[in-house]
Design a protein around this nucleic acid. Structure first.
Length: 567
RNA sequence: CGGGAUGUAGCUCAGCUUGGCAGAGCACAGGCAUGGGGUGUCUGGAGUCGCAGGUUCGAAUCCUGUCAUCCCGACCA
């Protein structure tokens, strides 16, 4: 590609509102432009990278036995009615009507479409298992799009769906996809971790992993062991119950005045106590039922664990007026002692260690002291309801937990029969019995993956593409096209490089050398070949973007030298 | 959805407090010089000051409404 006419607007200024490196560089290097909030145009340079990533994904998907198809972005709302998700999905689902006033949605995912398709055309175990995938544009009306294409409302996703006759078939498919994902992210040059993730209400236990690209700007937190392979999303990372039950104090329960002391910090400051000796009581509403979760003052409640323990569809913090109605006082003074009997109480295991604690008295500006769990309020069972912390023992018993931030680029998920049952995707088994298909789904955020690559591959001057996804292989620069020897050598190399299979971006613009160098660093192709002063002697300068390694090379040795650079 | 902020040339922004000719740098077009890290210089083109209404002799500036965008938080199969 001759750069003179290449549509590649680069920017010197950092665009307003671009806060993370990948977003800034994608705008500055001319990969994308914003069209609306959370909606982007991919420019020619960005599209080339996208296509490279897609090709890697396609190759690994085919290798894993998946077949590509393409489903529509616009889906009839009835399908979503059928699966029950028209209501469940909420305002993130983009909805629209056609001219006949029929309801449609812009697909945020395609379980409904694929399941109804397979339902209509596969009816026997002889046609199973099958895995289908697509690379397609998805729509989610995010409350707050941010970080460019990392969290956008229209984005490109690879989604695969497997259909098996039974659970063990699903397990096999899941393993194959898991491996394919590792291949894909490795080939994209990413430093990533596969972590255990929240299976939610539908997936059953142990049936889902997220693939996280390690990055400080990541919106997810990974809890991993400092000695073993254990890694999980902090949302689900288990906390081991290694706590000893404390002995009860001699003193009995007593009400004390705690004016304006509504938070753990207020209480520790006001009463001069350790956080760990306080009981934190938080009221949740789980599927319309009030649940009071009690943990230690130095811990945080994990609402996902609460939801999973109760097998609840929705868990949310109670609103202030709900707290008042249910507990008879405001948040900050609620506690398990004397709580209304219709309120279910869940107690985190770490609370065991409290011998003589403080908790809310369910009365404004009052707390109890000398509280002993089990003595002063009943406990049927302790559970794991808190967020794991750095330094906690790893759940596999090896090492301690550390945290890292990650960008979720992939998610593999054992769906089971939720959608096949809802949409009637059944097959006849060997005995002629009707059985629901057992499904898995496997997503990769393709456009997000592109941004994640840049997050891990850039320096202060621009992008430093891994060769596997780079939009071109070589950036060929002619510093002064007015010099005949430079110009002629440039033209000759442009042709010869392409004849030898290199994708070449050829900077033939009438620009200053500095401009070309800066744009070249910004765009970040793996190798730069410069025709400069020594062009007359057949000598060019070859520089590797990644590490700045630079050599003057005679054109006769150029191709063998390029081969050595690939290593 | 709650809180905060911003909309002026392609980009980054000044001008608004105190109403009076629409501005700068970069970018763009042309000339001259320069020609290995965003060079210098001269000339030029480019804006319905987000939109609508109001106040006023006069509005980018004040008022009301509205739309868009961004940031923080909450949320995220």
């Amino acid at each position: 590609m001759r750069q003179q006419l290449f549509f590649n607007p680069t920017m010197r200024d950092i665009p307003q509102g671009a806060d993370v490196p990948s977003h800034q560089l994608m705008l500055r290097a001319g990969l994308i432009r914003q069209t609306a909030s959370g909606i982007y145009t991919f420019l020619p340079l960005g599209l080339k990278v996208l296509r490279n990533i897609e090709r890697i994904i396609q190759e690994e998907m085919e290798k894993a036995g998946a077949q590509e198809l393409l489903m529509p972005a616009i889906q009839p709302a009835e399908l979503w009615e059928e699966s029950g998700r028209l209501k469940d999905y909420g305002p993130e689902l983009m909805r629209l009507k056609d001219r006949h006033d029929r309801d449609f949605v812009l697909g945020p995912t395609h379980e409904e479409v694929i399941t109804s398709l397979v339902r209509d055309h596969i009816t026997t175990y002889k046609k199973l298992p099958i895995t289908l995938y697509q690379i397609q544009t998805k729509y989610r009306d995010e409350r707050r799009p941010r970080f460019g294409v990392l969290r956008s409302r229209e984005f490109i996703m690879k989604d695969a769906y497997s259909f098996d006759t039974d659970r063990s078939g699903l397990d096999t498919n899941y393993e194959r996809m898991y491996e394919a994902y590792q291949n894909i992210f490795t080939r994209c040059g990413l430093d990533f971790r596969a972590v255990e993730a929240d299976a939610g209400a539908i997936g059953g236990k142990g049936g889902t992993h997220e693939f996280m690209v390690l990055s400080q700007i990541g919106e997810d937190t990974i809890a991993f062991s400092d000695t073993s392979q254990y890694a999980a999303n902090v949302e689900i990372a288990a906390v081991l119950d290694t706590y000893e039950k404390a002995v009860p104090p001699a003193a009995s329960l007593e009400v004390i005045d705690t004016p304006q002391m509504k938070t753990i910090d207020d209480l520790t400051a006001g009463l001069n106590l350790e956080k760990a000796s306080l009981l934190k009581s938080v009221l949740f509403i789980a599927d319309e039922e009030p649940v009071l979760v009690v943990c230690r003052g130095d811990h945080e409640v994990n609402d996902i664990k609460v939801g999973n323990a109760l097998d609840a569809r929705e868990v949310r913090l109670a609103e202030p007026d709900e707290v008042q109605d249910i507990m008879g006082t405001e948040a900050g003074f609620v506690g398990p002692v004397g709580a209304p009997s219709q309120v279910k109480i869940l107690v985190d295991a770490a609370v065991k260690t409290i011998s003589s604690g403080i908790c809310g008295a369910n009365e404004k500006d009052k707390h109890y002291q000398n509280v002993h769990p089990g003595r002063d309020f009943p406990i049927t069972e302790y559970g794991d309801y808190r967020i794991v912390q750095e330094g906690d023992p790893s759940p596999d018993g090896q090492g301690k937990i550390r945290f890292a931030e990650g960008i979720e680029v992939g998610h593999v998920f054992k769906l089971g029969t939720k959608y096949s049952e809802a949409l009637g995707a059944v097959y006849l088994d060997e005995n002629g019995r009707s059985q629901p298909m057992v499904m898995g789904c496997y997503g990769i955020g393709v456009s997000r993956l592109l941004a994640a690559v840049i997050e891990q591959h850039h320096d202060e001057n621009g992008i430093t593409w891994p060769g596997s996804v780079a939009p071109f292989d070589v950036h060929l620069l002619v510093l002064n096209p007015k010099q005949d020897d430079q110009h002629e050598l440039g033209e000759q190399l442009y042709t010869r490089l392409q004849d030898n299979g290199y994708a070449v971006l050829y900077d033939d613009r009438k620009e200053r050398a500095g401009v070309k160098f800066n744009d070249s660093d910004l765009i970040g192709l793996p190798v730069r070949i410069t025709c400069g002063k020594k062009a007359g002697d057949g000598i060019v300068e070859v520089k590797r973007r990644r590490d700045g390694k630079m050599e003057e090379v005679h054109v006769n040795e150029l191709f063998s030298y390029l081969e050595t650079l690939r290593k």
